[in-house]
Amino acid sequence: MRFTSTAPRTVLAAGALVGVQGLTALVFTVMLLVRGLSGESELGNNVFGEAAYFAVLAAGVLACAGGLLIGKTWARSPSVVVQLLLLGVAWYAIGPSGRPEYGVPVAVLCVIVLVLLFRSSTTVWAQGGDEDVAE
């Protein structure tokens, strides 16, 4: 089966990067579950609730990524919101938490995705305009 989409390459690239974020959230969820099942967590049973919360978030982000990859315009706005929220997380990691090794890569990835989602070809596509706009 051949994958085809009428979305501009900027949308497809953003979809792939949002997919990486969703998969990262899914891996984090599995790590939480493993930690909870092994009994290493100080949170006790609360770790399972936290894992369920992150599983729902990961599913939403992956749904946005899938929507962008297949060319659905509805996926652009929630993807922008996710990037803005993650920029806040990155800021906190860089500043108050003192963990720039985590915050800087997240911030860079978010800025790249935002630039891709606000390129002129992406904006025209999202508004239902001519898909033959030069990228």
Rank of each mutant, 00 (worst) to 15 (best):
N46L: 13
N46V: 04
N46H: 05
N46P: 06
V47T: 07
V47S: 12
F48G: 12
F48N: 14
F48P: 15
F48Q: 15
G49M: 03
G49D: 12
G49A: 15
E50G: 15
E50K: 07
E50C: 11
A51R: 02
A51G: 14
A52H: 09
A52W: 07
A52E: 12
Y53I: 03
Y53G: 08
F54G: 02
F54L: 11
A55D: 09
V56R: 03
V56K: 02
L57Q: 09
L57T: 04
A58N: 06
A58I: 01
A58W: 00
A58T: 00
A58H: 01
G60R: 00
G60Q: 01
V61E: 00
L62Y: 01
L62H: 01
L62Q: 02
A63Q: 04
C64H: 07
C64L: 14
C64F: 09
C64M: 12
A65M: 05
A65F: 02
A65K: 03
G66N: 06
G66A: 01
G67E: 13
G67A: 12
G67K: 14
G67R: 05
L68H: 06
L69F: 08
L69Y: 07
I70E: 11
I70R: 11
I70K: 11
I70Q: 06
G71W: 04
G71M: 02
R76Y: 08
R76L: 09
P78L: 14
P78C: 13
P78E: 12
V80Q: 13
V80F: 00
